[in-house]
Design a protein around this nucleic acid. Structure first.
Lengths: 191, 191
DNA sequence: ACCTGAACACCGTTCAAGT
DNA sequence: ACCTGAACACCGTTCAAGT
């Protein structure tokens, strides 16, 4: 069998969803494809690059059309899409967050948020800070959420089931913080 | 040489600060102590437990007295202390965040934040959400910050040096979000 | 272009046995 | 109580060589 980059990513996605990130090793993936681990290095420079490609594919598959017109509606859509995309695969949040921390993935959502907040009325110097705050929140919250979901589906603990409304609640909190600065600067511009 | 738990943690802290989290392996740590890796399992059930002890020690060493009287001043103090504690050791943020994601460490800051927000006037059902949002923010932001600091001190990139004021700015954003809910509920209680 | 086979330098963890 | 020695079942990565 001869494979392309895309075949490897596809298979990696299956291994991830079935066995989890910890079991997504080069040797395991090679075995799953019926190929020596070293063969994977023909397609990817190293594991990090492979994981980045997998993360990007997860986000690509979760992409949706924007419908909101207000800046805060669009921020909610972007963050919600990011969340749903990561929740669609086992350990998706951990994977995307790790890759992003390495400076490789999730460039799409980040650029979208920058673009939206740039037109929100938020003071220019606060835009990067707000974007990173939003992304840290989404990554952290969803990773948490997913860990608990997977733990409870494994029948381990009961705990508080922590439904998805928590995400909206917390995001609303941050959005309120941004709104304060948007309105503050609007008053300053037209006193 | 015969060691105690505390000696192992102390040495682990040195290895972490000198070589980084990736090089803090059981074998490496054993070697550093002049002991077989298996000897460490007399002191800790597994690596995860050892890392949790190291994370707790980092936070313990960063502990400070509270001086603020307002709820938002206290939240600022708690988050600032957490940040400084993690920044004091190489890869401190990544370590503490990882351990926390596993449900083991950083119980101190979490309980403190719950206690403070419970007396802030924030609606009771929002307290856990706000606390988790704050912690996700601090972990994510400081991990980011530390990665960049370490990259630039290694002479790799110039980039935006991203000073500590970013942290205060972003935290202020979230605090504003919380204030909106505190004041909202104050108006509801006394109409 | 894509893959094999073999090697290098590592991991975490267990367990019988020693002092 | 604390540690050794040996083993088990893994890692990521490199590289000459094959088709």
């Amino acid at each position: 069998m001869r494979y392309h980059r895309t075949d490897v990513v596809e298979r990696a996605l299956q291994v991830l969803d079935t066995y989890g990130l910890a079991d997504l090793s080069m040797r395991r993936l090679g075995g799953e494809l019926g190929v020596q681990p070293s063969a994977l290095y023909h397609h990817f420079a190293n594991k990090q690059t492979l994981l980045a490609a997998v993360a990007d594919e997860i986000l690509r598959r979760g992409a949706r059309q924007r419908t909101a017109r207000s800046w805060d509606g669009q921020v909610t859509e972007i963050c919600g899409e990011l969340r749903d995309a990561m929740l669609a695969y086992r350990d998706g949040a951990e994977l995307v967050a790790t890759v992003n921390a390495f400076g490789l993935g999730a460039a799409g959502p980040e650029q979208e948020l920058v673009a939206v907040l740039a037109t929100s009325g938020l003071p220019r110097e606060l835009v990067p800070v707000a974007v990173r705050t939003l992304l840290h929140f989404v990554f952290g919250h969803v990773a948490d959420e997913q860990t608990n979901l997977q733990a409870s589906s494994a029948g381990a603990i009961a705990d508080q089931p922590r439904d998805g409304s928590d995400f909206g609640l917390a995001l609303g909190l941050i959005l309120d913080g941004i709104r304060v600065r948007v309105e503050g600067s609007a008053r300053t511009r037209r006193p």
